[in-house]
Design a protein around this nucleic acid. Sequence first.
DNA 1: TTGTACGCGTTATCAC
DNA 2: GTGATAACGCGTACAA
Lengths: 338, 338
Amino acid sequence: MNKPVTIYDIAKKLNLAPSTISRGLKRHSSVSHRTQERIIKTAEEMGYRANTFAINLRNRKTSTIGIIVPKLNSYFMSQVIAGIEGVVNNAGYTLLISQSLEDVSKEIINVQTMFDNRVAGLLVSLAENTKETSHFNRIQKQGIPVLFFDRTPMGNDLPAITINNESAGYKVTKHLIEQGAKRIVHITGNQLSNVYRERLAGYRRALQEFKLPFDTQNVLINDLSEQAGIDAAHSIIKLMADGVFVANDHCAASCMHELKHSGKKIPEDIVIAGFNNDMISRIVDPALTTVDYPGFQMGELAAKNLLAHIAERIDINLTSNIILKTPLLIRASSVRKI
Amino acid sequence: MNKPVTIYDIAKKLNLAPSTISRGLKRHSSVSHRTQERIIKTAEEMGYRANTFAINLRNRKTSTIGIIVPKLNSYFMSQVIAGIEGVVNNAGYTLLISQSLEDVSKEIINVQTMFDNRVAGLLVSLAENTKETSHFNRIQKQGIPVLFFDRTPMGNDLPAITINNESAGYKVTKHLIEQGAKRIVHITGNQLSNVYRERLAGYRRALQEFKLPFDTQNVLINDLSEQAGIDAAHSIIKLMADGVFVANDHCAASCMHELKHSGKKIPEDIVIAGFNNDMISRIVDPALTTVDYPGFQMGELAAKNLLAHIAERIDINLTSNIILKTPLLIRASSVRKI
DNA sequence: TTGTACGCGTTATCAC
DNA sequence: GTGATAACGCGTACAA
């Protein structure tokens, strides 16, 4: 339970002034080489570690990056976060993490906590019921860059890293139609969220292009969970659909599983596609057609971008959005042998 | 880019002393009710937020919990972390996260970073090549509780939350034997890690009990990745095995997938079991027999325990280890209809 | 090249 | 009930 060593302790031991220690530790040129060595050596011997708070307080800034996501326990998010951590840690920053649990009110508190900790930058994926983003104003006004990813705010032009959800949804649906599907059910999530809204828009556009009727009955909105996939399977059978486009692989896989158990043949009776290219999409049988959504890369890119803005002190709000490519991965679940 | 508001700003505006503001803000009884209200009201109006560093510096302690894990991008870990975040955040703590990427040298650096940030407590799952834990000594000597989970140190009696890996491995293997398997391959990870070593020990004990020969050829050590599962499948076929026990579901699912594609019938030709009860184990076909390893609960439990120790200032090293129950979930991949 | 003195924002202690 | 002051550990302008 010994107290942490400070530069004062080192100063006393070496009969030097604390300021000299401070400078010597960071090899400031004004300190003689010999004393530098002496200082660094004894600092190590004494087990000195700089007090981050004192430094942050003094410098009025931190090397902490904050991150707020809707849910931590998802494979996709864990990929994104791993990507972020790698970049951020490499640059000497630390990571403060919190989840909103899909609730704006908690998101607001989280933003305040991030502000209290004076993060150098903030990476955010919005809760599904977040309608507007005024709770980020205060932190942005302090000059702290905020970068959104995946679930981004609609309507305004805040900097964000996204994919083209509309286009991806279009490509999936078009593909299913080309495989002969006439009645395609779309399973998706909360429509307040840009990602699900846009995927639905892409779905509609494809139907329209191929002159297939759009029927609200065919759009199933739920929480995209494993259970939701099972429930949806029964609706799909009742609706006599011959195609399914699910907004995530997790739910798609469980839906397909249930369809098979209900006697449907995939892809003969029903073609199906998911979204994300989660590991599970490769392992289910038949392999699931899906959209490659590279979470790890998105995390890396977001982190790099944020750090660049912090380092160069450029106003992040001047950046145009970055859109990642998301190729359609066609697999057995949607391919009908002619 | 306006500077953050401090208690001095509020003091000036209200013609009070900073110390009074400080007290008023936390509703100290020595401040009159009227001034309390005035202070809190104007603080809100001015958008005051306390500076965490100043507080931490002054109080010589933080409300930050550190967490170091081998890899962030795994479904299991994301579950654990979600559990931790919930508890920790609820208690008013923040979460500092880093990953060792399975490398001790980075783990050591991470521990130092955690120390630099004077975390109030540390939750750790060790890198696979961590042989000893002296790098935690310094932080423990400062009275900062360190609690290990999942991948815990061997040999010493540091406080930890684990499962009984040996017993779980035994139960799985015994079950496979009871289903008629005579030649069981065990696919597992780095043997420096307690979890994999113990699961192997359980596997051996079961073989011994049923008088089946133990053959090192039948133990495949790899990184338990998707690709490793595919490679292992081919070895399994060469080895003419009729049972497989894989140390995680991820790898087990891909292995089973490959076995099926190579013409093997599951469970008729080969019975197979995984570990973790990941979502994927429920969705593959046939459903995968596995061990229920409740990550979310483990995270919650670890966090609660750590916080209790911080709050009550009891030396965590006096605690006995906590062992979670891990029921065997028998599913179609291992059940032979007689 | 090194030392002195002050400030970063907060709180505990003592005085009034 | 409120104010002045010192201290938490560090960095830096200025002095020596």
